[in-house]
Simulated scan of single mutants.
Amino acid sequence: MGQKKKGPLQFLQFSAIGAANAGIDIGTLNLLLILFPTDEKWLLVLFNTIAYSLAIINSYFWNARFTFQRSAEGSKKQRSLFIVQGIISLGVSNVVFIASHSLISFTEIPNWLRYNISKGLAMFLSFLSSFFMIKYIVFKDFESNR
């Protein structure tokens, strides 16, 4: 009997792929900040958007093939829903990144550490929102509702 992955196992797989995405996300952000140092909010949002977008493309590829393979159809509807959840998660990421950066900018923490703390918080909260949207909306297993 082919059981669909539920609960902890699915979350563990999503988390492992999330770790790879985190490397892409934070690595890209740091590379952009090294190449183009800035404290301008609009550039920080642009850099965060580029980094997050690369990670979300990686996320779709691996999660569709492994974590949610039983319910991933590759249909236009699923791809569209994935894009919508990606935009929502990107919004969460950008808001948390800029808000936390602004809050801790009053401290004497070095810029590189401030950016990475802010990025870590943004990644965590966007990761959680992304998981639940992907599980219950994008790759929803319609067979389980019958």
Rank of each mutant, 00 (worst) to 15 (best):
I50Q: 04
R146D: 10
W62P: 02
G91V: 06
S129Y: 12
G18I: 02
A122R: 06
Q3Y: 10
K6L: 12
N58K: 01
Q13L: 09
G18A: 12
Y52A: 01
A72V: 01
E40V: 05
Q69A: 13
Q13S: 14
K135D: 01
N111L: 10
V45K: 08
E143G: 06
F142Y: 10
N30A: 03
S144D: 11
A20L: 15
S102T: 13
L33A: 03
F106H: 11
S93Y: 00
S75Y: 07
L81E: 13
Q10K: 15
T38Q: 09
P110M: 00
I98Y: 03
R65D: 12
D25L: 09
F68T: 02
L12T: 14
G18K: 00
F11M: 14
A22G: 15
Y136G: 03
W42S: 15
Y115D: 06
N58T: 01
F14H: 03
G7F: 07
V138E: 07
V92I: 11
Y60S: 03
I134G: 11
I34S: 12
S89Y: 01
F131M: 07
H101V: 03
L81M: 08
L90S: 04
M1D: 13
I109H: 00
Q78K: 06
V96S: 01
F68K: 12
N63C: 04
